[in-house]
Design a protein around this nucleic acid. Structure first.
Lengths: 241, 241
DNA sequence: GATAGGCTTGATGTATACATGGAGGGCGAT
DNA sequence: ATCGCCCTCCATGTATACATCAAGCCTATC
C-alpha cells in the first residue's frame, strides 16, 4: 500500500502519470498548466513541478515555446526501448563478470533463483509473486554491476512502464500463454548468474540481452492480441497502434 | 556564439551549469533556492526551474526532503559513463548495420571522413575543426541507427560534458599528445562506416565500443596530468580526484 | 538529570497577481 | 480579393506573500 503523499505536486504527478499510462491522455495531447490546475483543483505551481517531473521520466516532451506534450509511443519505440534495456542489462552482467562480485551477492542471487524455481514448479503460477522475485533479480543484477552510472541510466530506461523487467507479469489473464516464456526466462536468469560466477563477461552480456528479447516477445504477443489491448495490459494502453 | 537567451530561468540554468562544471560549486554542495535567487538577483521561481533542469541533466541530485545537491563525480563515474556511451554508440552502429542505411547517408559519412582526413594530413591539427567534424560524425551515427529511443538515451549520457564525443578535443594545450589517439580514432571512424556499409552488425558494434575507449584513454591521460586539471581541461574541473 | 513537549527557525511548498510575448483573427488599404 | 498590419487573447514566465513542515533547542516537569 502506497503511503499517502503529502505535497500536491506529488499527487498531481501520480494522477497525471496514471492518466497518461491508462491512455486517458493520448499521445500528442498538449497539457496546459491552467487547464490541468483547474482540473486538479490546485494552483499552477505544483502542476508545473509535476509536468517537469513527467518530462524527466520521459512521458512528456517539452514543446517548442514552453509547455508540454504527451509523448506518443509506437511499437518500434517499445521494441527499441526493451532492446535498449537488454543492452544495458547486458552491460551490467558483463561488468559484474569482469569486475567480480562477492560470495554474499552470489548467495543472494541463488536465493532468488530458488524462489522462482519454487513458483514455477506448480501448474498455476502466481504471477504477482513471480513479478516480485523477477524484480528482485533485475535489481540485484544492477547492484552486481557495481556501477552507479549504469544504475542511473537503467533506472531511466525502465521508468517507461513497458520497458520494465516486470512489465505485464502481473497480468493474470495471459498467465497461461506467457508461462512457456517464463520458464525460458528463468533458465536465462540461471545462466546469467552462472556466467557471472565464472567471470564469463561476453557470455553474461549476450545472455542478458537475449533475456530482454524474451520480454520483447511477450510484448509483441500482447500487442498482436487486440483483446489484450482493451483489457488486461494497462502498460500498453498508451501505445499507439 | 550562443544567442542571447530570454528567460531568467535559462540564464540561471546556464550560469549554474557553468559554475558546476568549472568547479566553483563542488560536489556535495547543497543549493538553497533563496541563496541562489539572491545571488542571481532573481526570484525563487526561475531558480527552481533551473535547478530541476540541472537535475534532469544529471548535474544535480534531488535531496531527500526536497532541495538539490551538486552531484560529485569520481574517476570511475567518468570511466563508466564513457564506457556507457561506447555501449550505446555501439548499439547505434549495430542498428545501422542491421537495419540498413541509405546511400545518401553513406555519402554524408564519406564526406565527414574526407574532411577529417584533410585535417589530419597536416602536422598542426586544428583541434576546433576536428572537434566540429567529430561531432558531426557522432551525430550522424545516431541518425544512422534510426532509433529515436536510442537517440534519446545517448543524448542524456553525452549531456555530461566529460562523456561527450568531443570532450577535450578543443584543448589546444595537449593537441600534440593527443594527436596519435586522434589518428587511431579516425581509423575507427572509417572502419565503423565500412562495417555499416557491409551490414556487419557485430563488427560495427565492437568498433564503436572500442572507439569510446580511445576517448577514455584521453581522459585518463588528462586526469593523470596534474597540470591539465588546473588549466586546460574545463570539462574535468569538477571531477573529484 | 532525563525526557517530553512545544517553540523557533529556516527551508521548501503553494497560491496568486502581474508581466511578457507569440499566434491568430479582424480590419483596413491597395 | 488579397495582403499586411495591428490588436487582442491566451499561455507561459516571474515575483512575492503566505503556508507548511521538519529539525533542533530550550524549557518545564517529573
Amino acid at each position: 500500500m502506497a503511503e499517502a503523499v503529502k505535497t500536491r505536486a506529488e499527487r498531481a504527478l501520480i494522477s497525471l502519470r496514471q492518466r497518461i499510462l491508462s491512455g486517458a491522455l493520448s499521445g500528442g495531447t498538449r497539457l496546459f498548466e491552467v487547464a490541468v490546475a483547474e482540473d486538479l483543483a490546485i494552483s499552477r505551481t505544483p502542476v508545473r513541478a509535476a509536468l517537469a517531473q513527467l518530462a524527466e521520466e520521459g512521458l512528456l516532451d517539452r514543446a517548442k515555446g514552453g509547455g508540454f506534450v504527451v509523448r506518443s509511443f509506437d511499437i518500434s519505440d517499445v521494441e527499441d526501448t526493451i532492446e535498449l534495456r537488454g543492452v544495458l542489462e547486458g552491460t551490467a552482467a558483463r561488468f559484474a563478470a569482469e569486475r567480480g562480485v562477492t560470495e554474499a551477492q552470489l548467495a543472494e542471487a541463488d536465493e532468488i533463483i530458488r524462489n522462482i524455481d519454487r513458483l514455477l514448479s506448480v501448474a498455476r503460477v502466481e504471477m504477482e509473486k513471480y513479478s516480485h522475485w523477477n524484480s528482485r533479480f533485475h535489481d540485484l543484477l544492477v547492484r552486481l554491476s557495481g556501477s552507479a552510472a549504469l544504475a542511473r541510466e537503467l533506472a531511466r530506461v525502465t521508468a517507461l512502464p513497458f520497458a520494465s523487467p516486470s512489465a505485464f507479469l502481473d497480468d493474470e489473464t495471459h498467465a497461461g500463454q506467457l508461462l512457456g516464456n517464463l520458464r525460458i526466462a528463468h533458465e536465462q536468469h540461471k545462466a546469467i548468474i552462472d556466467a557471472i560466477r565464472h567471470r564469463e563477461g561476453a557470455r553474461a552480456e549476450s545472455l542478458a540481452r537475449e533475456h530482454a528479447r524474451t520480454a520483447r516477445r511477450n510484448v509483441q504477443f500482447l500487442l498482436s492480441d487486440a483483446a489484450a489491448r482493451r483489457e488486461g495490459s494497462a502498460a500498453l494502453a498508451f501505445v499507439r497502434a
